[in-house]
Amino acid sequence: EFSMMFKHFDKDKSGRLNHQEFKSCLRSLGYDLPMVEEGEPDPEFEAILDTVDPNRDGHVSLQEYMAFMISRE
């Protein structure tokens, strides 16, 4: 189920989600993330990124995504 969600939000089929795609994916899974303006701080989402994209390369791989989802179950 999680990998299907990942593929759905991987719009460019790159095998990874940019942070915006990842945020959309989390919202569709029921995460209550506040709407913030582009460039505004988003501490809740930043905290999630610290876990799922610790190297802050700007992308979430399928492996990082799956590890995050399994840790939340």
Rank of each mutant, 00 (worst) to 15 (best):
Glu1Ala: 05
Glu1Arg: 12
Phe2Arg: 03
Phe2Cys: 07
Phe2Met: 09
Phe2Val: 09
Phe2Gly: 10
Ser3Thr: 09
Ser3Phe: 10
Met4Lys: 09
Met4Pro: 02
Met4Ile: 03
Met4Arg: 15
Met4Asp: 05
Met5Lys: 02
Met5Thr: 08
Phe6Ile: 11
Phe6Leu: 07
Phe9Leu: 09
Asp10Gly: 08
Lys11Asn: 11
Asp12Tyr: 06
Asp12Lys: 05
Asp12Gln: 09
Asp12Val: 04
Lys13Glu: 15
Lys13Ser: 15
Lys13Thr: 06
Lys13Met: 04
Lys13Tyr: 15
Lys13Cys: 14
Lys13Trp: 05
Ser14Ala: 10
Ser14Pro: 08
Gly15Arg: 04
Arg16Thr: 09
Arg16Asp: 02
Leu17Tyr: 00
Leu17Trp: 00
Leu17Thr: 00
Asn18Pro: 05
His19Arg: 03
His19Phe: 02
His19Tyr: 14
His19Val: 04
His19Lys: 03
His19Trp: 09
His19Gly: 00
His19Ser: 02
Phe22Cys: 01
Phe22Lys: 03
Phe22Met: 02
Lys23Ala: 05
Lys23Glu: 01
Ser24Cys: 15
Cys25Ser: 02
Cys25Thr: 05
Cys25Met: 08
Leu26His: 00
Leu26Thr: 01
Leu26Tyr: 03
Leu26Cys: 03
Leu26Pro: 01
Leu26Arg: 00
Leu26Asn: 00
Arg27Tyr: 08
Arg27Thr: 11
Arg27Gly: 06
Arg27Glu: 09
Arg27Val: 12
Arg27Pro: 01
Ser28Glu: 13
Ser28Phe: 12
Ser28Thr: 09
Leu29Cys: 12
Leu29Trp: 06
Leu29Ile: 10
Gly30Met: 04
Gly30Ala: 04
Gly30Ile: 02
Gly30Tyr: 01
Gly30Cys: 05
Gly30Thr: 01
Tyr31Asn: 05
Tyr31Met: 13
Tyr31Thr: 08
Tyr31Ile: 15
Tyr31Leu: 13
Tyr31Arg: 04
Asp32Phe: 10
Asp32Val: 10
Asp32Thr: 13
Asp32Asn: 15
Asp32Met: 10
Asp32Pro: 13
Asp32Ala: 12
Leu33Val: 08
Leu33Thr: 07
Leu33Cys: 08
Leu33Glu: 03
Leu33Ser: 05
Pro34Trp: 03
Pro34Asp: 10
Pro34Thr: 09
Pro34Val: 07
Met35Glu: 15
Met35Lys: 14
Met35Asp: 15
Met35Pro: 13
Val36Phe: 07
Val36Asp: 11
Val36Asn: 10
Val36Pro: 12
Val36Ser: 11
Val36Trp: 08
Glu37Ser: 13
Glu37Thr: 12
Glu37Tyr: 07
Glu38Ile: 11
Glu38Ser: 12
Glu38Lys: 12
Gly39Thr: 07
Gly39Ile: 04
Gly39Tyr: 04
Gly39Val: 05
Gly39Met: 06
Glu40Arg: 11
Glu40Cys: 11
Glu40Gly: 11
Pro41Leu: 13
Pro41Asn: 13
Pro41Met: 12
Pro41Cys: 12
Pro41Gln: 13
Asp42Ser: 09
Asp42Met: 03
Pro43Val: 10
Pro43Trp: 07
Pro43Tyr: 05
Pro43Ile: 08
Glu44Pro: 09
Glu44Gln: 11
Glu44Val: 11
Phe45Pro: 01
Phe45Ala: 01
Phe45Gly: 01
Phe45Tyr: 07
Phe45Lys: 00
Glu46Lys: 06
Glu46Trp: 05
Glu46Cys: 05
Ala47Asn: 11
Ala47Ser: 12
Ala47Ile: 05
Ile48His: 03
Ile48Lys: 01
Ile48Gly: 00
Ile48Asp: 01
Ile48Met: 07
Leu49Met: 04
Leu49Val: 04
Leu49Ala: 01
Asp50Gln: 06
Asp50Met: 03
Asp50Phe: 00
Thr51Glu: 15
Thr51His: 11
Thr51Tyr: 13
Thr51Arg: 14
Thr51Trp: 10
Thr51Lys: 14
Thr51Gly: 08
Val52Ala: 05
Val52Tyr: 03
Val52Gly: 01
Val52Phe: 02
Val52Pro: 00
Asp53Lys: 04
Asp53Trp: 00
Asp53Ile: 01
Asp53Gly: 02
Asp53Leu: 01
Pro54Ser: 07
Pro54Phe: 06
Pro54Lys: 13
Pro54Gly: 05
Pro54Ala: 09
Pro54Tyr: 07
Asn55Ser: 11
Asn55Pro: 05
Asn55Met: 11
Asn55Gly: 12
Asn55Ile: 05
Arg56His: 06
Arg56Leu: 04
Arg56Glu: 05
Arg56Asn: 09
Arg56Phe: 00
Arg56Ser: 05
Arg56Met: 06
Arg56Asp: 07
Asp57Ser: 15
Asp57Ala: 14
Asp57Phe: 10
Asp57Arg: 14
Asp57Gln: 15
Asp57Glu: 14
Gly58Phe: 00
Gly58Ile: 00
Gly58Trp: 00
Gly58Thr: 01
Gly58Tyr: 00
Gly58His: 01
His59Pro: 01
His59Leu: 08
His59Ser: 12
Val60Met: 00
Val60Glu: 00
Val60Pro: 01
Val60Leu: 04
Val60Asp: 00
Val60Phe: 00
Val60Trp: 00
Val60Tyr: 01
Val60Asn: 00
Ser61Cys: 10
Ser61Gln: 08
Ser61Val: 06
Ser61Thr: 14
Leu62Ile: 10
Leu62Lys: 12
Leu62Gln: 11
Gln63Cys: 08
Gln63Pro: 11
Glu64Asp: 15
Glu64Pro: 06
Glu64Ile: 03
Tyr65Ile: 05
Tyr65Met: 07
Tyr65Glu: 01
Tyr65Asp: 02
Tyr65Phe: 15
Tyr65Thr: 05
Tyr65Asn: 03
Met66Ala: 06
Met66Glu: 15
Met66Trp: 04
Met66Tyr: 04
Met66Leu: 12
Ala67His: 10
Ala67Gln: 12
Ala67Tyr: 06
Ala67Asn: 15
Phe68Asn: 05
Phe68Pro: 02
Phe68Thr: 04
Phe68Ser: 04
Met69Gly: 04
Met69Arg: 04
Met69Trp: 07
Met69Tyr: 03
Met69Leu: 13
Ile70Glu: 14
Ile70Gln: 15
Ile70Met: 14
Ile70Thr: 13
Ser71Tyr: 02
Ser71Phe: 06
Arg72Leu: 11
Arg72Thr: 09
Glu73Val: 08
Glu73Asp: 15
Glu73Lys: 12
Glu73Pro: 15
Glu73Gln: 11
Glu73Arg: 11
